[in-house]
Design a binder for these strands. Structure first.
Lengths: 137, 137
DNA sequence: TATGAAAGACTAACTAA
DNA sequence: TTAGTTAGTCTTTCATA
């Protein structure tokens, strides 16, 4: 991870469709170098995924899920990540154990997810915050 | 936004580099239709951005920032979004007003961000949670 | 929806450090 | 041995009908 990698990543974060040739021009190297480095960054897992950020619905929310002690948090996370409408599942330090970031068509759909989460045996409770505005870094 | 749109988005979310021809095959339509729809979704703002998710450092964290009443939260958010290492800035409902999602090389760098946030006049306080594990939906 | 032209990405052979 | 370059080829995208 050197400065060239960081420059490439910063361009890809803004627009992952930027052609290698254009990235190469902007950072002052060749197309092949950019490609090799993107490949390497992907293999190393520094680039996790090429994706799209969406606003499919009108409501995004953070759902904080607290789980019982002695529960396999990773297993629960994995199941939650499979749910439609879930963008991220984070295991976090602090009071609650899991944070879901979701993107739903409406508040009712958010509510559906919360209900589903609460129905899991491992889940003690949830706290939800609506994301009123999002800015990408 | 119909079911075909949703299928296309779900493929792009997993891998935004999937060729239109392959998407077309998988959803049972033509390349041109996929292209037109992706264009439309992008114009409508449903696709916000083609991007990469990264793990540039070892530490991701959620920094919850509470701001003073009577503060222009949007203006603060905008400034925070410009900081290096910041992936998302959310204005949220609930107790704290802004949530930063950051990706840093180490805990010290996280700490640097927290310090910087606390130095802003508008900021009353912060709470930080380390993201110990992330799964993409 | 089909087709050809243009743009972009990939392969592989080569060079330099 | 590793990183970078380049030319040629193949794939994808895009515009047009």
């Amino acid at each position: 991870m050197d400065d060239l990698d960081r420059q490439i990543l910063s361009i890809l974060r803004r627009d992952a469709r930027t052609p290698y040739t254009e990235i190469a021009d902007r950072v002052g190297t060749s197309e092949g170098t950019v490609r090799n480095r993107v490949d390497r960054l992907t293999e190393e897992g520094i680039i996790e995924r090429f994706t799209v950020t969406t606003q499919t619905g009108n409501v995004k929310a953070m759902i904080e899920v607290s789980v019982d002690m002695n529960v396999n948090t990773s297993a629960v996370s994995e199941r939650l990540a499979d749910w439609e409408e879930v963008d991220f599942v984070w295991q976090v330090s602090g009071e609650d154990d899991i944070v879901l970031v979701v993107d739903c068509v409406d508040t009712q759909a958010v509510n559906g997810l919360i209900t589903r989460a609460r129905e899991l045996n491992e889940v003690k409770g949830t706290t939800t915050r609506l994301i009123l505005d999002e800015r990408l870094g």
